[in-house]
């Protein structure tokens, strides 16, 4: 018994030392903001809310997704990984129906990616409430997604046989579970105008119930 206690405390001590000695990779938000400015990210990404677009023309002027709620939209850690290796999320250029996404997004080194990610994760929106949506292969969610609303009409998904299928104008939902905060998916479905007052995806609030949206958000979070 006594030896067990000794071993236990030694293990604890080692763990403690390990933690204390590990350099933290947490980036600096201040520095991230500077890197964001320096690289002119602002030319395509909006970092100040709330959304002000009123007309289709306003929305068409945007060249990339708005990031003023990035910290509420993306899962912790996603932004940093993506900035180091930016893989195409939208098959088409932003809001274009003629140009394919060239996949030429700026790539950052590890240090810059960590800083910019920390900065972007600090940008949050109160419109995303902590509802606590959990990923779930929900039958209701699946039926809405693939049958009653056919979301794959515009969003890429993996078929049961693992093939990439679906439309190209919406952001791909392959990997959505790793990318998106489930509560943001729910907020975006139920209250889309808070994030994008003008968008080419139909408004589903008033068509689907909040329970339907919660089921959809849970289902999409498993992708």
């Amino acid at each position: 018994m006594k030896s067990f206690v000794t071993i236990f405390s030694v293990v604890l001590a080692i763990l403690f030392l390990f933690y204390a000695a590990t350099p933290t990779f947490a980036g600096s938000s201040e520095s991230g903001k500077k890197i964001f400015k320096k690289n002119k990210c602002i030319a395509c990404h909006q970092i100040e809310g709330p959304a002000r677009e009123k007309t289709i023309a306003d929305q068409m002027k945007r060249k990339g997704p708005e990031l003023w709620y990035a910290g509420s939209k993306f899962k912790a850690g996603f932004i940093e990984v993506w900035l180091k290796n930016p893989e195409v999320i939208r098959p088409m250029e932003y809001y274009s129906i003629t140009e394919k996404n060239r996949g030429d997004h700026i790539k950052l080194n590890s240090a810059d990616a960590a800083d910019v990610a920390t900065y972007l994760e600090s940008l949050r929106s109160g419109a995303v409430k902590p509802v606590g949506i959990q990923p779930a292969v929900d039958r209701k969610g699946r039926i809405i997604f693939s049958k009653s609303q056919s979301c794959y009409g515009c969003h890429q998904v993996l078929s049961r046989r693992g093939r990439v299928v679906g439309g190209l104008t919406g952001p791909s939902l392959i990997g959505a579970g790793k990318r998106l905060n489930p509560d943001w998916i729910y907020a975006y479905m139920t209250n889309s105008t808070a994030f994008k007052p003008v968008k080419d995806m139909p408004i589903y609030a008033g068509i689907l119930s909040n329970t339907d949206m919660a089921a959809l958000a849970a289902y999409i979070s498993t992708f």
Partner: peptide, 15 residues
Amino acid sequence: QCHGLEGYGDGPNAT
């Protein structure tokens, strides 16, 4: 996005 710019049903979502 689905019906095409000229309406021929050939938008990018018509994969």
